[in-house]
Amino acid sequence: MTKFLLSLHVLAAIIAVGPITVAASMFPPSARKALADPGSERAVSAVRLLHRICRVYGGVGIAVPVLGFATAMSMGVLKDAWLIVSMLLTALAAMVLLALVLPRQEEILEGIGAHDEGSADWTTTTAVGAKSTAQLAMFTGVFNLLWATVTILMIVRPGSTTGA
Results as ranks from 00 to 15, higher is better:
residue 62 I to L: 11
residue 62 I to P: 03
residue 62 I to M: 08
residue 65 P to C: 05
residue 66 V to W: 01
residue 66 V to M: 01
residue 66 V to H: 01
residue 69 F to R: 12
residue 69 F to K: 13
residue 69 F to I: 14
residue 69 F to G: 12
residue 70 A to T: 07
residue 70 A to L: 13
residue 70 A to D: 06
residue 71 T to G: 07
residue 71 T to S: 13
residue 72 A to N: 05
residue 73 M to D: 14
residue 73 M to P: 07
residue 75 M to T: 08
residue 78 L to G: 09
residue 79 K to L: 11
residue 80 D to W: 04
residue 80 D to N: 13
residue 80 D to M: 10
residue 80 D to I: 02
residue 81 A to I: 15
residue 81 A to D: 15
residue 81 A to M: 15
residue 81 A to C: 12
residue 81 A to Q: 15
residue 82 W to I: 13
residue 82 W to Q: 06
residue 83 L to D: 03
residue 83 L to Y: 14
residue 84 I to D: 07
residue 85 V to M: 05
residue 85 V to I: 13
residue 86 S to L: 09
residue 86 S to K: 04
residue 87 M to G: 14
residue 89 L to T: 03
residue 89 L to A: 05
residue 90 T to N: 07
residue 91 A to D: 02
residue 91 A to P: 00
residue 91 A to K: 00
residue 92 L to G: 00
residue 92 L to I: 13
residue 92 L to H: 00
residue 93 A to W: 04
residue 93 A to S: 11
residue 93 A to P: 05
residue 93 A to K: 04
residue 93 A to C: 08
residue 94 A to G: 11
residue 95 M to N: 10
residue 96 V to E: 03
residue 96 V to C: 06
residue 97 L to M: 12
residue 98 L to I: 11
residue 99 A to M: 12
residue 99 A to V: 08
residue 99 A to D: 07
residue 100 L to E: 11
residue 100 L to F: 15
residue 100 L to A: 15
residue 100 L to N: 12
residue 100 L to C: 15
residue 101 V to G: 01
residue 101 V to L: 01
residue 101 V to R: 00
residue 102 L to V: 10
residue 102 L to H: 08
residue 103 P to E: 12
residue 104 R to C: 01
residue 105 Q to V: 13
residue 105 Q to N: 11
residue 106 E to L: 14
residue 106 E to C: 09
residue 106 E to M: 13
residue 107 E to V: 04
residue 108 I to T: 08
residue 109 L to P: 00
residue 109 L to R: 08
residue 109 L to I: 14
residue 109 L to M: 15
residue 110 E to C: 08
residue 110 E to W: 04
residue 111 G to Q: 03
residue 111 G to Y: 00
residue 111 G to L: 04
residue 113 G to N: 09
residue 114 A to M: 10
residue 114 A to F: 07
residue 115 H to Q: 15
residue 115 H to V: 11
residue 116 D to Q: 10
residue 116 D to C: 06
residue 116 D to V: 06
residue 116 D to M: 06
residue 117 E to I: 08
residue 117 E to G: 09
residue 118 G to H: 00
residue 118 G to N: 04
residue 119 S to P: 09
residue 120 A to N: 07
residue 120 A to I: 14
residue 121 D to G: 11
residue 121 D to M: 10
residue 123 T to P: 10
residue 123 T to R: 14
residue 125 T to I: 12
residue 125 T to N: 07
residue 126 T to S: 14
residue 126 T to Q: 15
residue 127 A to V: 09
residue 127 A to S: 11
residue 129 G to M: 02
residue 129 G to L: 02
residue 129 G to V: 02
residue 129 G to C: 04
residue 130 A to T: 07
residue 132 S to I: 01
residue 132 S to C: 03
residue 133 T to M: 08
residue 133 T to E: 05
residue 134 A to V: 04
residue 134 A to W: 05
residue 134 A to Q: 04
residue 134 A to G: 04
residue 134 A to H: 05
residue 135 Q to D: 09
